[in-house]
């Protein structure tokens, strides 16, 4: 398998890094691949731009940065505007449909998948789990790893006592993603 290059973008406080971290964990710990996560590190606080890059490969990962973006998952308009033009032809865009409106920055050859992730998060109990809905959506659309790998990675990563809520969020996003790609 060639290297899969992923970027997750949004606002500080949305759980962007956690979302990317669960993807990396699912691949590297629960599915035996290699994954490298690099987070945009700057003086960001809540509400400002935030992004993370994940490379996943069967091979050893040398160069750690994303240069040829396969998959972009975004939870803010700024992140879309900044990173959508870097998607490679044939790449995938996953976006939160209430937070992101597509515009002419989206390259023509990209496949775009929308999800009402904030609404889903509210439905399962808390808007806060938007990022986990996005992880589930990512899992369902990309099938980069098994659902089980994502489930375990999520359980490893979320605070004790919130497991049920987060797994519901993950499942909701996953089912929606699966239906979207198969339908």
């Amino acid at each position: 398998m060639a290297k899969t290059e992923i970027r997750v973008g949004g606002l500080g406080g949305q759980g962007v890094i956690l979302c990317a971290s669960i993807i990396g964990k699912a691949a590297s710990i629960h599915e035996g691949k290699n994954a490298t996560l690099i987070q945009a590190f700057g003086p960001e606080a809540r509400g400002s731009a935030c992004s993370a890059q994940v490379s996943v490969s069967e091979e050893t990962i040398g160069y750690p940065y994303v240069t040829n973006l396969d998959i972009l998952a975004v939870m803010s308009q700024d992140a879309f505007n900044q990173f959508a033009p870097t998607l490679k032809p044939g790449g995938l865009l996953l976006y939160e449909e209430e937070l992101v409106k597509l515009n002419d920055r989206l390259p023509k050859e990209v496949k775009a998948f929308a999800i009402p992730a904030t609404r889903f998060a509210e439905e399962v109990g808390r808007r806060l789990v938007l990022n986990i809905v996005m992880v589930g959506f990512f899992a369902g659309v990309t099938k980069l790893c098994s659902f089980e790998a994502f489930r375990k990675a999520t359980l490893d990563s979320v605070p004790k006592g919130t497991e049920d809520l987060n797994i519901k969020a993950l499942q909701k996003g996953y089912d929606f993603g699966l239906k979207l790609v198969s339908g």
């Binding site: 990396g24 290699n34 996560l37």
Partner: peptide, 8 residues
């Protein structure tokens, strides 16, 4: 980069 890079 090594300090802030996350891997297995």
């Amino acid at each position: 980069v090594v300090g802030h890079m996350t891997e297995r």
